[in-house]
Simulated assay, not measured.
Amino acid sequence: MKNVQRRVIPAPPERLGQVIDEITDPGRSVWPRPAWPDLRLDNGPTPGSSGGHSTIRYTVTAYEPGRRLAFAFNQETGLDGWHELTVTTGENGRPTLVHTIEARTTGPMRWRWPLAVRWLHEALVQDLLDNAELAATGTLAHRPARWSPWVRLLRWWLRPTR
């Protein structure tokens, strides 16, 4: 399975790089909280640091300040592969923030990914990209991301019970 989401953001690449550098800093992060479970790493964005969000666990495999943060999934999550957030030069040389996942699904994730996790993940990343664009430019060039009816139903169904 491969999933790539990207957003061209009209801001200097250095500013987009700050988004990556600050993603695990609760005071400055563009991580979409409280709507989504916090991203936590036990030693910040440094190789070998472990953590994740919700039940998805991973380890930092590479960190290039201002450019790239990469992770390998812990196999017990049912994902055998990696994901990363990068700043690239996209269309017509414009700065682009890209989130990529490449993994093989195993165990229950074989059905969880296509039915639920994929849709929740894409909604989370779109919220993250909205926050990154707002932080980098002060505005959005389009309407804010909107959760599909399926994502809203999944979030209702999977909500914590009291």
Score class of each variant (00 low, 15 high):
residue 1 M to W: 10
residue 3 N to E: 10
residue 7 R to D: 06
residue 9 I to T: 09
residue 12 P to R: 14
residue 12 P to W: 09
residue 16 L to I: 06
residue 17 G to H: 10
residue 19 V to S: 01
residue 22 E to F: 03
residue 30 V to E: 10
residue 31 W to C: 11
residue 34 P to N: 00
residue 35 A to P: 00
residue 36 W to D: 07
residue 38 D to Y: 05
residue 40 R to Q: 13
residue 41 L to A: 01
residue 41 L to F: 10
residue 43 N to W: 02
residue 45 P to L: 12
residue 50 S to V: 15
residue 51 G to Y: 03
residue 53 H to Y: 12
residue 56 I to C: 03
residue 58 Y to R: 05
residue 59 T to A: 11
residue 61 T to W: 04
residue 63 Y to I: 02
residue 65 P to Q: 00
residue 66 G to A: 11
residue 69 L to M: 08
residue 71 F to Q: 05
residue 72 A to N: 11
residue 76 E to T: 09
residue 78 G to L: 06
residue 80 D to W: 12
residue 82 W to I: 08
residue 87 V to W: 07
residue 88 T to R: 14
residue 90 G to V: 04
residue 91 E to A: 15
residue 92 N to E: 15
residue 94 R to W: 08
residue 94 R to S: 13
residue 96 T to E: 15
residue 98 V to F: 01
residue 99 H to T: 11
residue 101 I to N: 10
residue 101 I to Y: 11
residue 102 E to G: 11
residue 105 T to E: 10
residue 106 T to E: 08
residue 106 T to I: 09
residue 106 T to C: 02
residue 108 P to Q: 12
residue 111 W to A: 13
residue 113 W to A: 01
residue 114 P to W: 04
residue 114 P to A: 05
residue 117 V to D: 08
residue 117 V to T: 15
residue 125 V to W: 13
residue 126 Q to Y: 09
residue 130 D to M: 00
residue 132 A to N: 04
residue 133 E to M: 09
residue 136 A to V: 13
residue 138 G to E: 11
residue 141 A to I: 07
residue 141 A to V: 10
residue 143 R to S: 13
residue 143 R to W: 02
residue 145 A to H: 15
residue 147 W to D: 14
residue 148 S to R: 02
residue 153 L to H: 01
residue 154 L to W: 10
residue 157 W to Y: 14
residue 158 L to K: 12
residue 161 T to N: 09
residue 162 R to T: 00
